[in-house]
Simulated assay, not measured.
Amino acid sequence: MTSKLLNVMMTKSKIGRLKSHQQCLKGLGLRKIRHSVQVADTPENRGMINKVAYMLKVEEV
Rank of each mutant, 00 (worst) to 15 (best):
P43Y: 01
L25D: 02
V39W: 01
G27R: 06
L28K: 11
Q23G: 02
G29M: 08
N50A: 12
L18A: 15
G29P: 01
K51Q: 15
Q22C: 08
V52R: 03
V52H: 04
L25C: 09
V52S: 01
Q23M: 14
D41E: 15
Q22K: 05
Y54T: 07
K19P: 08
M55Y: 11
V39C: 06
N45P: 01
G47V: 02
D41Q: 13
Y54C: 06
R17S: 04
A40S: 09
K26P: 00
R46P: 00
R17G: 00
P43D: 03
L18D: 14
R34C: 07
A40H: 12
M48N: 10
S36M: 13
I15E: 02
R46C: 04
Y54N: 12
R17W: 08
N50T: 09
R17P: 00
C24I: 01
M55D: 10
R31A: 04
N45A: 05
K26V: 10
Q22S: 06
K26D: 14
L28G: 09
V37Y: 13
D41R: 10
Q38K: 14
R31F: 07
L56D: 07
T42S: 15
N50S: 11
V39D: 06
C24E: 13
R46T: 03
Q38Y: 14
K32I: 02
M55S: 07
M48L: 14
E44I: 08
I15N: 00
R34A: 08
K51H: 15
L56G: 04
K32M: 07
V52G: 00
T42N: 12
R17M: 04
R46H: 03
V39S: 03
N45C: 01
N50Q: 14
L28Q: 09
R46D: 04
Q23A: 13
Q23K: 13
I49V: 10
I15H: 02
S36G: 00
L18Q: 14
R17E: 01
A40L: 09
Q23V: 12
T42P: 02
D41H: 13
A53G: 03
I15T: 08
G16K: 01
R17K: 09
N45I: 03
I33A: 05
C24V: 06
Y54K: 07
Q38W: 10
N50P: 02
Q22N: 06
Q22E: 09
C24L: 04
V39P: 00
R34E: 15
H35L: 02
G16I: 03
K32R: 14
L25H: 08
G27P: 02
I15Q: 05
H35V: 01
Q22P: 01
G16D: 01
G27K: 07
V52F: 00
L28R: 10
L30I: 07
K26A: 12
H21V: 01
K32Y: 15
N45D: 03
G27V: 07
K26R: 09
